[in-house]
Design a binder for these strands. Sequence first.
DNA 1: CCTATTACGCAACGCTGTTGCTAAATTCTC
DNA 2: GAGAATTTAGCAACAGCGTTGCGTAATAGG
Lengths: 366, 366
Amino acid sequence: MTRTTADVTFLRGYNQALVMAVGRTVPTFERSTIVQATGLTPQAVSKVIARLTADGLIRTAGVRRPGIGKPAVVYELVPDSRYAIGAHVARRTLRLVLVDLAGAVHHSAVSPLPDDFTPQQLLHALRTGIGAITAGRDLRGRLTGVGIGMIGPLDHEHGLVRDAHGLRHWHDVPLRELAEAHLGLPVHLDKDVTAGVTAEAWRHGGTFGDAVLIMVESGIGGGFWLGGTAHRGAHTNAGEFGHTVVELDGPLCVCGRHGCLEIVHNRAAEAGDIARAARVLAVGVVNLLQTLDLAHVVLAGADLLRYAQPYLAAVEEAVHTDVPRADWLTTDVTLSSLGADVIAAGAAMQVLDRHYGVPELALLQG
Amino acid sequence: MTRTTADVTFLRGYNQALVMAVGRTVPTFERSTIVQATGLTPQAVSKVIARLTADGLIRTAGVRRPGIGKPAVVYELVPDSRYAIGAHVARRTLRLVLVDLAGAVHHSAVSPLPDDFTPQQLLHALRTGIGAITAGRDLRGRLTGVGIGMIGPLDHEHGLVRDAHGLRHWHDVPLRELAEAHLGLPVHLDKDVTAGVTAEAWRHGGTFGDAVLIMVESGIGGGFWLGGTAHRGAHTNAGEFGHTVVELDGPLCVCGRHGCLEIVHNRAAEAGDIARAARVLAVGVVNLLQTLDLAHVVLAGADLLRYAQPYLAAVEEAVHTDVPRADWLTTDVTLSSLGADVIAAGAAMQVLDRHYGVPELALLQG
DNA sequence: CCTATTACGCAACGCTGTTGCTAAATTCTC
DNA sequence: GAGAATTTAGCAACAGCGTTGCGTAATAGG
């Protein structure tokens, strides 16, 4: 729910989000921590903390006795004050996770989906799986919604699946509406890779710089986090990183072009030459760094994590040797900290982000 | 000057910027236009318009008599209420332009720079050129500053030129400070391509979507406008689009990698095969669309504009045939509307944007 | 026991945009 | 032609935000 106009409620949400971002990244914090990190006055911090405490989002956690003066009250996030459920819809499997306000994964389960599954079959699987998660827990009033990370193309804004790649029954399916009606919970729909990079950003709080999450899993995609928010592009279609040409006049790709990163990579991988596949991927990653100048590269996806070390090594080497002026061009390369859960967990965090993250200010319409 | 905390002055700046963005894109507007475009209440629009009128930024321009009811007052931007000077520093030339609040170019002049010029020589040329522009005009109180668009790499935030490509005397030069002291005006320093794309965005007002400006001029670069703001990356180094590999094991590039877009393109161009050079560039453009899903592609740069039509045709064709699902994936391809002035004009508009554009809200420090 | 220091809240304030209402200017209707 | 209807736009009071000024509580040191 983007707002177009900026009113005082935006201020409230914005400054509260700053405090929550600090709370996610540190075990405990004091008012002075917030003052320093945000630039707010102590009095403003008092008011923000009072509101967050009233909502049960943060709580006191003792006092600090540093020496002279009145001891400072120590606060901490209340991780189990809010939850969200995340779903990763892949071609053959549905992964469901339960994530708390701090971004920790409390439950993870994978179930198979029927071959060429229909929207109805997915809705059924979602309800069954979510029922299993909520059955043993008392989440009343604390479950903020369900996030769905799915293969595209889709329309994030309208919650519409346009044409899920390789799934025949998915053409212009209003999945968000259907799922909200079927589940009785707010639903957020996004591309899998975009959800994934949100997971990394959310868990790092407010200091996470421009980043890409590279996902290799029956196809190669990239999720972007730019300028403190997910980058989806003009039609929610950003991230088709696998379909960038790295070899003019190379082998024909399913997308119709020649020499796409994905086809070149996959041929090497299918031939068992993981080292070469990793090097090809690394060339693509360096292309992204040259284009976008990113601070973080996160590697994910089942087909990559199966050979995590060779991939990590190849990308790290390329990043450190192929990008000139590496003294100030620092970019860190990591594996996804959540492993195979990253997409589903990120989808859940997108729901949390809508409530407790930095509010959006939409630009003009039209 | 990014602010970390959100206070009421942010609201004022934000909503004023929305109105100004409307004012730039239409000849005249009414209060109801603003209400519809922004979602503000009529009363809030009254207050915003009163403030902008008091500052001389907008003025009444008659009334509209549509039929029944009290006639609506028509407003317009006052283009000559504010100016900014823009400089495009290239390897051998300095281009200076005078731009008004609406983004119109009032004056444009190119002067040669000495071979391998020094910072002092550039400062001298800037002062001379700016003196010539201001001499015949009364700009007192209306000149907001000077924007400099320059080849990188540089550090936008600190106004520091790290290592201007191919210029020996430019290593860690604090150009912004030097120029502010030398010229007595606020100075904004940015990469040439980022300034360029700002020109396109500023002139289109608040409805300009994600975009890239491709610049071919002794090198190939790209300036990005993403999510309503310029994307500079983690170290102001985004845009090295020419150094993305499109031909694995291709010819060696100056950057140390093989098969970069720039070297492949330049070889074709040097061989006189403009059609092939344009097709190679188009492959790179489609790569960007696949990665970032952009709404606008703007072509610029002296070496491209010399053969504008072949380039435009090749890129348009590639965008329309190589990107699948073109029915909803609409991307427009245009030549820079300002031609050779685009970089300098964009640098000037960056200065205007800092004052009258959407204010930034920085994330947490640290 | 007094003082310095640090933490933190209360109260008043200035500034947003919002809400409720009134006034002005025009066309339409009888 | 006079009153009704419609549209525009401002005035006044209000709520909510962060800010400023100042008072109070809690600790250590002398």
